[in-house]
Design a protein around this nucleic acid. Sequence first.
DNA 1: GTGGTCTAGACCACG
DNA 2: GTGGTCTAGACCACC
Lengths: 127, 127, 127, 127
Amino acid sequence: MLLTIDATDRTPVYEQIANGIRAHIVSGELREGVLLPTVRQLAADLGVNLNTIATAYRQLQDDGLVLIKPGSGVTVSSRVTSARDPEDLRKPLRTVLTQLLLAGLGRTEIMGVVAEELRALAKGARP
Amino acid sequence: MLLTIDATDRTPVYEQIANGIRAHIVSGELREGVLLPTVRQLAADLGVNLNTIATAYRQLQDDGLVLIKPGSGVTVSSRVTSARDPEDLRKPLRTVLTQLLLAGLGRTEIMGVVAEELRALAKGARP
Amino acid sequence: MLLTIDATDRTPVYEQIANGIRAHIVSGELREGVLLPTVRQLAADLGVNLNTIATAYRQLQDDGLVLIKPGSGVTVSSRVTSARDPEDLRKPLRTVLTQLLLAGLGRTEIMGVVAEELRALAKGARP
Amino acid sequence: MLLTIDATDRTPVYEQIANGIRAHIVSGELREGVLLPTVRQLAADLGVNLNTIATAYRQLQDDGLVLIKPGSGVTVSSRVTSARDPEDLRKPLRTVLTQLLLAGLGRTEIMGVVAEELRALAKGARP
DNA sequence: GTGGTCTAGACCACG
DNA sequence: GTGGTCTAGACCACC
């Protein structure tokens, strides 16, 4: 499992990590039941604080994507569907689309970019 | 021009305001040369501090979307195209799409949502 | 005499105007004794406020570059040498040079740019 | 690291500070990865407000000269080259050169002053 | 501990 | 009257 942290990115580190894990789940690389690295292990690998990893895992647990069992580690949840309401995602989606439009892209160009990204993200997902 | 601030949203207020104005520009409601509300006026309307509005306006100026002329107000720039690199927007786009996939939406469903949002955002924009 | 105002430039308008006139004096286009446009005339030409022009002229007078005689207009001073201490110009010079170095230019490249600008500015001046 | 603020200078304090740090970077005194003073520390040292320092640091970050990592401080960026376009610096350069010419210096005298300043600024830079 | 954000209020430069 | 700058002080997110 490859996770990278971009120090330039203003997104909080714990959120970058959570996003990275989300991407691996959606790509099918991390299947249900798989055991994730321990907090200490991942913190050492990425060179970040223990609390940062713990916060990332907690966020994923709140989404219903992983199960934290103290003592036996963190596993990918059996239902790989986030508990988040799709409607809550409309606002951030709208913000990104607005910026793409302002960057000069036309509607069909944007649809092309979106389709491209979706293919790259979820090779094995249902269409 | 309608602008709303969502106190529950963790996005900084000045960024919510800038995003709102971006949306109005992209929708065509705010055309080139139009004078935006004064810093004091908008601050009073939204119930926030002067500096918060000034920060939002400065961000829009850095994007090249508005022109700030001390003494004569803030106008929508003649270049309604942002100075931002479209490639920089792929990462945030990918993050939102990942979350939509995790929320259980299929690829065609997501394409539908995106098309719908694009229609709502840019009624008068080129396809 | 051609003067342009760049609304994008954060330099005050009156200073842009004063700088433009300074450039015309140094290029030899405006010689000693020449009558400058009246405040009203120049304000109308440039589409700016009367006070803006008056401030520009006052700044040039403080430099000793022009003579303001109420009732008979503004003329280029007989001594076309500014009253400003060259040492006071070191700090702004240093600031620009620092930024050129940070922009990646080498010392000889910068000397080349400076020589080029000097040739363009003062075709008829002493070497 | 020595930074001074000139209250008589009309340049904004945050810009004087940013310029001072730029000079220290270009001189090689501040190398890549070096940790700058904290916002609070520098504010106390210089006797200015926190926000003033934060604004200066943000400006340097926008130039790509420093990296701000909330929680762990501000470091000199690995790219010690500013993101600014050298062409944008020609106008301010021209303004300073014009004033030097008007102060009575000849072209070769000015070239001498420039060479002298460049030597003082960037002892270790490439020629 | 770090920087980020926001407020309230002041003064100044500019047009 | 416009925006720009600066202050003092507060609270929050992140590491």
